[in-house]
Design a protein around this nucleic acid. Sequence first.
DNA 1: CGGACTTTTGAAGTAATTCAAGGGGAGTGG
DNA 2: CCACTCCCCTTGAATTACTTCAAAAGTCCG
Lengths: 233, 233
Amino acid sequence: MEQQRDIEILKRAELFTGVPTPVLAELQAASFRKRLAAGDVLFRQGDPVDTFYIVIVGRLRVTQTTPEGAQVIIRYLGPGQMAGYSVLTGGTQHPGSTTALDDSHLFGWPAATIRDMMTRHAAIAVNAAAVLGERYHEMQVRLRELSTERVEQRIAHTVLRLARQAGHRTARGIEIAFPLSRQDLAEMTGTTLHTVSRTLSAWEEKGIVDSGRRRVIVCRADALEAMAEAADK
Amino acid sequence: MEQQRDIEILKRAELFTGVPTPVLAELQAASFRKRLAAGDVLFRQGDPVDTFYIVIVGRLRVTQTTPEGAQVIIRYLGPGQMAGYSVLTGGTQHPGSTTALDDSHLFGWPAATIRDMMTRHAAIAVNAAAVLGERYHEMQVRLRELSTERVEQRIAHTVLRLARQAGHRTARGIEIAFPLSRQDLAEMTGTTLHTVSRTLSAWEEKGIVDSGRRRVIVCRADALEAMAEAADK
DNA sequence: CGGACTTTTGAAGTAATTCAAGGGGAGTGG
DNA sequence: CCACTCCCCTTGAATTACTTCAAAAGTCCG
């Protein structure tokens, strides 16, 4: 049954782990589905917060744009992860924009529904705190990297993190499973696409990575780890 | 009554807003008190997560240290705020160190107590999610600043944020209410104390700030805002 | 009033940006 | 199927914002 399958998916979502099946059934009944094609925008920075989503399949990117037009990538979202966390924290405007990188499929709920469920079922609220705490922690790490490391180290850390989060074993190494341009890496590491390009070229030379148009494969993770830890400043 | 006064304090804590009084009484009964002198450490990065705190009076600083010894300031904590959020998210080790800047006074609870209360009272868990979401958001903003802005702009943003969070009106301007060295500002903005010193000297010249040994007073917030927004990169 | 910490300021060095130009791959449309 | 076009990537050269190195001058506290 379709309904049963949906519940299985919800059960594996980060926000709903450990939530009893009847509650999941209630959530399933209240949900709608949303489809996005690659490049479609789920919501834009500044939009009113009225809907909450969970990714079923696909990959999305959360970005923040400055008034001057510079962009920063906050994170990538994959299956099971939530989009629109502001619904949980009572925000009124989305702090960033969320865009589909591949054709994607999501569950959606009106904000009031999720807020109500969270208030009635502590387990969901506890999960929400855990997920947000984890994202907070991840940001602490990135902030520390950005403050204290050189560009090459930061790129190494970022590529390793992406390989871990969205890596896919191939014959040549661990391939990052979604399109990733030099510009994207620059927006994640606080540098320019030129510097990223030079860095990847140098790594390619040494056989550490294999990369091309919007594509990165890590061939020698150990060598990258070494770069990332480089104690010699 | 002492107990009554404690409950009043808890009622105003960020984690317990809107929580019914009987629950606060239960929390009060389970709490212990912790005193710290200026400079004392509440917990250290890597310590096992076993206690949760709420600041009653005083000011603390949360830092992260890299293996190479470089430090980054994650945030400052004031009255009503929580310390040891990992208790709420199920972490096992503290991601950062927390140190008292002034003589401070806190409520403390064993981790299990808070986790139990959070599970039994959804309102607490909902607050936890809201607080962590806010901190997550704050980190997004800092990450964006660090990625896209020049040092002077970052220092301007940081000083303004501190003035907003811990500002104290005086005859000469808004004084930041805790000791804040050039080194501290450097660790918040990802630069060196030298650059911070030069920047503050230049601002002093223009009458924008008045600063001295571990002390900063913002005289002309408008001029700082202008620096912070500077669209001319 | 000695000593430890904090701040200031100059000068030299450099990592990374900015400026500039060209090359290549993938999709599109004739 | 080939040419056209749009992106994306690469690479050199010049520039610069900031760091690093170095030394000295304040400032607070016991």
